[in-house]
Design a protein around this nucleic acid. Structure first.
Lengths: 361, 361
DNA sequence: GCGGGGTGCCTAAACGTTTTGGCATCGGGC
DNA sequence: GCCCGATGCCAAAACGTTTAGGCACCCCGC
């Protein structure tokens, strides 16, 4: 009938902040009125529940689209006991500073987009020693990025009844929570094989000791690879909180110095490069470097560092999906949590340029 | 009346944020019951409105504290037409990648904490070409970090009626929005004076050309300083989207090469250092460097780079405060928006170590 | 003794959804 | 002709707050 084209407001119908119920009536009510049905039917049509005739459903959907209708999240949440808020947080020692931020930001952005599609909003929960923010935030669920081993935050969130999905795993409770992770055993092997293929003889590993799963995954994959290929194990770990230069220096000054390093964090690549300069070693001629997480530094340093693209966008997206699924069919008491593996891609750069004369058939 | 089961019922109101459908009657209702007052009075007491006797107010507050009561944000928002969500976004060209992320993350964290204190949650809105996420997110207001000149996003948000506070200014609409900003004229001068004091004769500036206010502020402060101190203007700009190495190279290879550079972004410091190495210039002996925003790279590079600590925590906190104030007393039509200046601090590091023999009284 | 203004509190009506529990109508099977 | 299930829709009751409006009471001045 009267198909007036209304401006699309943020939600509700034409809800300029100052305006209150002038004439039009509430959002869903207005949609129902224009479609000539009851509010109930409109709600059912929009949510795909209840019994609604096909033609009626179409009509409601069309009206809603025209009006740019979006359900008021407060009202929806009030009735449904949900808040529409998801938390996402990074497990980082507060004093140690945030590392490999780009990886983190990309995960967050991807998760935000994914949540948006299902009418959830993502809140970035700042790291804190006591997890205080989680007490105050009305979250329907939380993504925890790179949990520690036996992470107290997970314990706490569990006790609070907040659904949790992790990115990386808490090593001490193998599969208690749903998680998304890189298949690091494969990724690391790809990196190590690449180093071998470009002529490295003595491949070392620089990993961390934070208790986050990637540290240990890399170490295990590395040890396996050394055993399988009959190479020496040249492994060192950066102490948490320090600048990791010390560990790089230890590795590069030991007797039988490695001629290639696989370093887990982007910042380790940074430190390694500095140590190489300090020791007068050139990259890639004397030492090849592969870093375990791509980022601005790996791309922009000279020489640019070969890196694993861990596909943080995919990780973020899948973590959000998983979390929203868990929230959707809440209890699922007996079922084992779902897990997803994300492949990584090796980005070859100057730091592992094949050496002249190191060709192998 | 008052002899109802009062002490710490294990399944009382106990509204841990994540809990779903807990029993025991509604939250506020339960508080009112235990305090022996009506829901209205309880609400009034908790919000400090209406007329409530002092003793009654105390009683209600005590009960609420004991019960750990927190108002259901959905219900509160439903009635009050607010959502309790604030957006925060960074103006970055999508393809150019995020730069100086640490600065950004620190602002976000600080703003999150500040919002928390007033029962707001902060949503990190991902950058997008079309600003789409803002259509879908039910935000009460938004913080825009480092807006562009004549920023279309600001136009759009304005049209949507969403209150906005910026961090840095949109240069084309001087004071249309409330903002928080570093007092860059002062900060830049401090940096330049420091370079002069450590013996630099020809001080150059490497800034950007993104249209964000800090680029122009730095340029203006630099030109003023050169004029005032009678020094030559050695200014170049990085093209947006490139890695800024080119601009650094232009500056460092021009006739009358600068012996000190003030570079606006942390990433420019990165590029400058690389170019210095490439050209065989040593830092700080041949070229001193000050970067305009501190971060992991400035701290961790060798030599470590002298940097301005822009106090992103303070900026984030104040931006959130400003925004919540604006939302609180919404209309304020005639009043000019509030502005706040945040001081920065120069962190002296190796890249500007005073040269031997360059002492000035 | 009465009006009037304050005070302290309460009842009831919103807010915009989802969900519950229907009521008609229709078409078949007997 | 009757019963029964399926279908399409609706009215009303939640959800937990805030807020408008109002009632009773007290104290004071007249």
């Amino acid at each position: 009938m009267s198909d007036v084209t209304e401006p699309h407001g943020p939600h509700g119908v034409d809800r300029k902040p100052g305006r209150r119920g002038a004439g039009g009536g509430g959002g869903l009510r207005e949609v129902a009125r224009r479609a000539g049905v009851s509010v109930t039917t409109a709600s059912h049509a929009l949510n795909g529940v209840g019994r609604v005739g096909a033609d009626t459903r179409e009509r409601v959907l069309a009206v809603a689209r025209d009006l740019g209708y979006r359900a008021n999240p407060n009202a929806r949440g009030l009735r449904g006991a949900r808040t529409g808020l998801l938390g996402i947080t990074h497990r980082t020692s507060v004093e140690g500073g945030i590392t490999d931020i780009e990886y983190f930001v990309k995960i967050v952005n991807a998760a935000t987009w994914t949540a948006l599609d299902r009418d959830y909003s993502l809140v970035l929960v700042p790291p804190s020693l006591d997890g205080r923010p989680f007490e105050s935030l009305p979250l329907d669920g939380t993504i925890v990025i790179d949990p520690l081993t036996d992470d107290p935050l997970l314990t706490r969130l569990s006790a609070m009844g907040v659904p949790v999905v992790t990115t990386g795993r808490d090593l001490s409770r193998k599969d208690a929570f749903p998680w998304v992770d890189n298949e690091l055993s494969t990724c690391a092997q790809a990196a190590l094989d690449h180093l071998a293929a470009t002529g490295a003889q003595r491949v070392g590993l620089l990993t961390g000791s934070t208790g986050q799963s990637y540290d240990e995954d890399a170490a295990r994959a590395y040890r396996d690879w050394c055993a399988r290929t009959g190479r020496p194990v040249l492994l060192d770990r950066a102490e948490p909180g320090t600048d990791s230069t010390a560990a790089a220096r230890r590795l590069l000054t030991r007797p039988g110095r490695p001629d290639a390093l696989y370093v887990v964090m982007e910042k380790f690549g940074f430190a390694t490069l500095a140590v190489c300069r300090e020791l007068g070693l050139s990259v890639p001629e004397d030492v090849q470097i592969v870093v375990g997480a791509d980022g601005e530094f790996a791309r922009g340093s000279r020489p640019a560092l070969t890196a694993l693209d861990l596909a943080p966008e995919s990780i973020g997206r899948q973590a959000a999906e998983l979390l929203m699924n868990v929230i959707g069919n809440l209890p699922e008491p007996g079922a084992t949590p779902e897990h997803r593996l994300v492949p990584a891609k090796l980005l070859e750069r100057e730091s592992t340029r094949r050496r002249a004369g190191a060709e192998r058939s």
